Computed example of a mutant assay.
Amino acid sequence: MTLSSIALIGVPAAAADEQQATAEQNTAAKPSVIINEVYAGNTKAAGDPDSKRCDWAELKNTGSTDVDVKGWGIYDSGKKAKKHYTIGTSEVTNTDTVIKAGGYLVAYIDPDKAKPAKTCDAAPDMKVSSIKSDNLIVTILATSNCDDKNASTKFNDSATRLTLQDSDDNVVADAVFDFSGDNAKTISGDTGTKIKVSYASSQYYRPANEIGANPSDLSVKSVTGSDKGAGAAASSDSGVISGSNVTDDEAENNASKALDWQVEHDKDSAELFYSTYTAQLSSKRKGMEAEGKTWNYRDILAQFITMHNKNSNVLLIWSGDWPAYSSNSDKYYVILAGEGFDSTDEAWNWCKANNYGPNDCMSIDLQ
């Protein structure tokens, strides 16, 4: 056995009643004890107290008080070796389990007495840690939801749908990710594991800068064994997992609800243009034949987000809500510039200055 990637778990691996008090003390003190050095594949260096050459890990107490690490676990998280070794048992040989303040302890790990790491099937708890808005790279903190805090969860499904929702459960991003093979994660311990995923422009349903404004307000819904649609996110960032689209029906449903949410969100701002002019940039409805394609909800939303990324004042309205469009029996999602003008000429000058032609930009007030 050769240690590959290890972690120190400051909770007793055994659950004996007599260790409970020690467990509580050790858990509180855990942040002060670190893995200082690891010697793997020991064939030449000094052995343990029984002269047996073992891999070893040197622990350091960086705190100001002594810490007893009896019952703590050293977890080997390498790709092949998934083992757990308990300090203070025959699995880990050492003469004392108390590390003095500022002191060290060398734990010799006996490969012949290793125990398989405990696992559970409970889905991990997940929350958004941070968002990089440029291309919607989301860092998710996943923590173990196992009853036994020494157990870990394998996050290795090849079709895990991760849906980001706001505080009202509205979907803001949705994609299916492959966590199998090299993308697999082991979720263990209270500190959790960070997972970075990226959503392509077809996989989020609000402007990226708005999604990233308050990441702590977002929740993560995880569903394994999900159906995939076509397309995948592309990211140049190392360690970021790209996702496939959800199915067309699910994406279209997400986009339809997102359009309705955006219309309601922008209604108060649009009321300013009862008494002044703004510029209309687009009017589209589902099934409309225009610009060489048949428009669906995803196309309409994508156009709005693209324009919003260019100009954050852009608004989305439903023509049926405003008197200016009452003469037209067909109703449309309308994109407005969100800029106020005193005259139609001023609005048209704005259109020209922003490279919009007469077929793409027109002056309007909403009365």
Rank of each mutant, 00 (worst) to 15 (best):
W295M: 13
A279G: 01
N309F: 10
I6V: 14
A234Y: 04
T224E: 13
W295R: 14
K80I: 03
S32V: 10
K100G: 07
F304I: 01
G292I: 04
N254R: 10
S327Q: 14
T143F: 04
Y104T: 07
T89D: 04
H308M: 08
T276Y: 01
R206A: 06
P207A: 14
Q367L: 08
Q303C: 00
A208W: 01
F273D: 01
A324T: 06
W318N: 09
D121K: 10
Y274N: 11
T139F: 02
T143K: 13
G102A: 04
S188W: 12
Y297K: 13
A230M: 12
V11I: 12
S282D: 09
V176Y: 09
T224I: 11
D169M: 05
N36V: 00
L315F: 07
I335E: 14
D299W: 03
Y325N: 08
W56N: 13
K228R: 15
A232L: 00
I137M: 01
P116R: 00
Y75N: 00
A208T: 06
K331F: 02
A200T: 04
D190R: 07
G103A: 04
E346R: 14
T143D: 01
C351G: 06
S235I: 02
G338D: 09
C351F: 09
N313C: 12
I74Y: 02
D55A: 15
V223H: 06
G102D: 03
P215I: 09
K331Q: 13
G63C: 05
A13K: 05
D157R: 01
N61M: 03
D110L: 07
L315M: 12
T306Y: 14
V92W: 01
S129Y: 06
P31I: 11
L366V: 05
K154G: 05
K118V: 02
K70L: 13
H84N: 01
Y325M: 05
A208N: 07
N145E: 02
S180Q: 08
L366I: 04
V98L: 14
S343Y: 03
Y332A: 10
A46T: 15
A21Y: 10
E289Y: 09
K352W: 11
S64K: 14
D248Q: 15
S326H: 04
D134N: 06
T186S: 09
K79M: 03
A122S: 09
A234H: 06
Y205M: 07
D365C: 06
S283H: 15
L281Y: 12
V246F: 10
V220H: 13
P111D: 09
W322K: 03
Y274I: 02
Y108D: 12
N245Q: 08
N170F: 00
S90K: 15
A23Q: 08
I99E: 05
N313A: 15
T119W: 02
L162V: 15
S256C: 04
K83F: 00
D66C: 03
Q20R: 03
R206N: 00
D217L: 03
L272Q: 07
I6Y: 02
N354T: 13
G73S: 10
T43L: 11
I137T: 07
I140G: 07
E339D: 13
V246S: 15
Y277D: 05
A14P: 02
Q262V: 08
A45E: 15
P215T: 08
S77Y: 04
S236R: 13
G88C: 06
R298L: 12
T2L: 10
S326C: 02
